[in-house]
Simulated scan of single mutants.
Amino acid sequence: MTFDHALFHADLDAQPWASYTHAYGSAEDVPGHLRALAGHDDAAADEAQSELYGSILHQGSVYEASAKAVPFLARTAAAGIRTAEVLLLLGGIAEGGADPRPTCGAEPREETGPSEGRAGESDEVACRRAVVAELPLLIASLTDESPSVRQAAAWAAGWTGAAGAALAVPALRDRLEAEPEPDVRAELLTALVELDPEGSGPLAAGAIGPDHPPQLRTAALLACADAGLPWTRDHHAAAVDLLPLEPHVSGRYDETRNEPVHHLALTLLERDTEADRDAVGALLDAALRHDDPEARAEAAWAATTACELSRGMPARLAPALIAAAEQDGDETGALAVLGRLGPAGAPAADLLATRADGDGDPADRALEALVAVAPE
């Protein structure tokens, strides 16, 4: 697509940016950043991108100016200018947005332009609506020759919510069938479950087996948990087989699930059923006893949260945590977790006393844990 910089600049100038607001007040600086982002100076474009993340998507929050910037960001991405990076910014704006309230009938599209918003509408709804209006661009980018662009488009489409699901879900399904790249397939599956958990749950359940790449299997396990599917022996076996899980999500844009074992433990425990508590206990026990120290480190961090959320988890995990601490010392974090076990950690007293009899931070942490589990 030919990008007409002069027209782009004229359209930017036609907007009353100074009357819009972002995280730091007036959005009068936004058109300059959008110009630089679409310009030829890479250093200036990098700086502009950083500034836009700080102002129109500040720590995940969106503003009036965020929605107004969406059409200009979409034009930039459609022109092949920093496409993956701009798609991620659009997806972040959609993620920070919110779906419009359901109505009894279809809203007349011609009342306002796609990014003009509606009277009384929150900034969050206006932002989600603005990105949904650009879904044709996101869908077209799903077939881009660049895997990073396809992946960014899948991630962004997954945050368009109920407002975008009718258009996005069929396109994401079609692309999943054709997509060869494991990280992109994982992003597509995650987006589908985000938009349509009931309809896409079976897709996730069918992708946990060893005939699929580990990136997709890991995404499928997380998607099964997110979709509310029962956690079965097959899920447990697949998770243990894939440990450590974090390397399988390292190439993803999905930062909400970048600590997979922790995400699984938290998601299953939030269901608040005995079966799910047992599932978390079994998974963390297996991971804490795993041969790979990375797997034990992932499990130690997840065990911290599990012990905070489940009254029975400290006693359930104490033997495996003690075994991990004996093997790793302070390297995987298991030693520190022992201090969170309360009375259930008392069997670790001798180990902790031995480790506390020394100098340095590890000894201090062992002493702190010892005081917590066996103050006598």
Rank of each mutant, 00 (worst) to 15 (best):
F3W: 13
L7I: 06
L7N: 07
D13M: 03
A23R: 14
Y24F: 10
Y24G: 14
E28A: 13
H33N: 14
H33S: 11
R35Q: 11
H40D: 15
A43P: 13
A48I: 05
Y53A: 02
Q59S: 14
G60L: 04
S61Y: 04
S61A: 13
S61T: 07
S61R: 07
V62Q: 09
K68C: 02
A69C: 03
L73T: 06
L73C: 13
L73N: 11
A77L: 07
I81Y: 12
R82S: 08
L89R: 12
L89H: 07
L90I: 10
G96M: 12
A98S: 12
D99K: 05
P100I: 06
G105Y: 09
E107T: 06
P108L: 12
R109K: 12
E111I: 09
E111M: 12
T112V: 12
A119L: 09
A119S: 15
E124V: 10
C127D: 12
C127Y: 11
P136H: 10
L138P: 14
A140I: 07
L142H: 11
E145G: 13
E145Y: 04
R150Y: 10
G158L: 09
G164K: 02
G164N: 06
L167N: 14
A168C: 09
V169Y: 03
A171M: 06
L172M: 12
R173F: 00
L176A: 00
E177C: 00
L188Y: 04
A191D: 04
E198P: 06
E198W: 04
S200D: 08
G201M: 03
G206Y: 04
G209E: 12
P210K: 02
D211P: 06
R217V: 08
L221V: 01
C224L: 05
D234F: 03
H236K: 00
A238I: 02
P244F: 01
P244W: 00
L245A: 00
P247T: 03
H248W: 14
Y253C: 12
D254V: 01
E255G: 09
N258M: 09
L266V: 08
L266E: 09
T267M: 12
A279C: 03
G281D: 10
A282M: 06
R289K: 04
D291W: 01
R296E: 05
R296P: 11
A300G: 02
A303R: 00
T305W: 07
A306E: 08
L309H: 03
P314T: 02
A315S: 07
A315D: 11
L317M: 05
L317P: 14
L321N: 07
Q327T: 13
D328N: 07
E331S: 10
E331W: 06
L335F: 02
L335V: 00
V337M: 13
G339L: 03
G342M: 02
A346C: 03
L351P: 15
L352Q: 08
D359M: 04
G360K: 01
A366W: 11
A369N: 10
A372S: 13
V373W: 01
